[in-house]
Design a protein around this nucleic acid. Structure first.
Lengths: 192, 192
DNA sequence: TCGAATGTCTAGCACTGCTAGGATCAAGCC
DNA sequence: GGCTTGATCCTAGCAGTGCTAGACATTCGA
């Protein structure tokens, strides 16, 4: 293997290290604590190195978001695969979504709360995001009911989950009724 | 009137000026543009004056949020008062909510997206916030359906609206289907 | 009229994201 | 082997952030 190839590989490794470290730091102490200085120190390089991989902090957030979207899609698909009845699938999906948001708050923020410079709901939307939405629609499409487009239904269901997830995490909704909220959402929104 | 009274009044005036200016600046250029320096310059005082009224930027956001909550409650009540049929009332409420969020994005952020240091869903929650939730529940309570607590139903409906509002504003949902989303939400969630 | 209290400002701290320019080091050529 | 060239990385710095200590003026009460 050539020297050039090795350097390219090392560069790719370092980029992954940056993203992983940013994510780790964000999950530990929140995105506010992810400063370029702290991040640089953790990866044991100087600040400018970050800018040779990413245009700025925003792009780093975007990279974490893409990584998270892929994981979220996996989590949702594996959760729904275990259930056979349609209602069980929808409930499993909703739980998996809220569970992911709760367990990975920083990643969830990067995806849906912060500005990672990513395009959503467009042609140039990254594949990971499209696929995460596809994962939602695979289960929700069959619960849309007559005369309602699967896309529209998925958007509305997703938005509802998103509202519950964010309001719960910011302590604007008490976590106690979480399970009852899921049941209510599923039973009312989904046509089964 | 005593000199002391005049001073107190002037102080209260200045506090209102700070809040109004912060809100105006946030609506014009976003909360990121609301720096203590810029805010101080606009009210034609030096920075430290802000700290004689508020503990910090967070408390200023909180003050804007409280002002916004009161306005939002008024907007929702006047929107629902005009409708007589139950479904019309719920639709009017949903539209008024989303409309407020769209017309006052900075205020909406202060209320539900940023940290204004306020307590939600607790005993020591400010009256304005409790009343805004009460305004929601006045209309939604009668649409909860049998066996579902009005509070729980209101929370879920609110969360759904919140999800739609935030995802639309961050361009994660396209604004085109806005009306259809409202119809779907109301027709599925509300029991009329 | 004078000391005290109140009000306000200047100047500064430690931090942020980001970048210009210099040092270092390895690759390639004669 | 010695030299040049180019890539790589770091030091140092800029303009901005939230917030505060301490100096200064002004006004009040005795």
């Amino acid at each position: 293997m050539s020297v050039q190839e090795r350097k390219q590989r090392e560069r790719a490794d370092r980029e992954r290290l940056i993203v992983a470290t940013a994510r780790e730091l964000a999950e530990q102490q929140g995105w506010d604590a992810v400063t370029t200085r702290r991040l640089a120190e953790r990866i044991e390089y100087s600040q400018p190195v970050l800018y040779s991989h990413f245009r700025g902090k925003r792009e780093i957030i975007g990279a974490v978001a893409l990584e998270g979207a892929a994981e979220m899609a996996v989590a949702m698909r594996s959760a729904t695969a275990a259930a056979s009845a349609p209602r069980d699938r929808v409930v499993a999906l909703a739980r998996a979504y809220l569970d992911f948001a709760e367990r990975n708050p920083a990643v969830y923020d990067a995806l849906f709360q912060l500005d990672g410079g990513l395009a959503y709901a467009q042609e140039d939307t990254p594949e990971q995001l499209k696929d995460a939405f596809a994962a939602l629609m695979e289960t929700l499409g069959e619960a849309a009911g007559d005369g309602v487009a699967p896309e529209l239904f998925t958007e509305v269901f997703w938005a509802s989950l998103h509202g519950v997830a964010t309001l719960t995490r910011s302590r604007r909704l008490l976590p106690e009724d979480a399970e009852r909220r899921v049941e209510l959402l599923v039973d009312r929104l989904a046509v089964l």
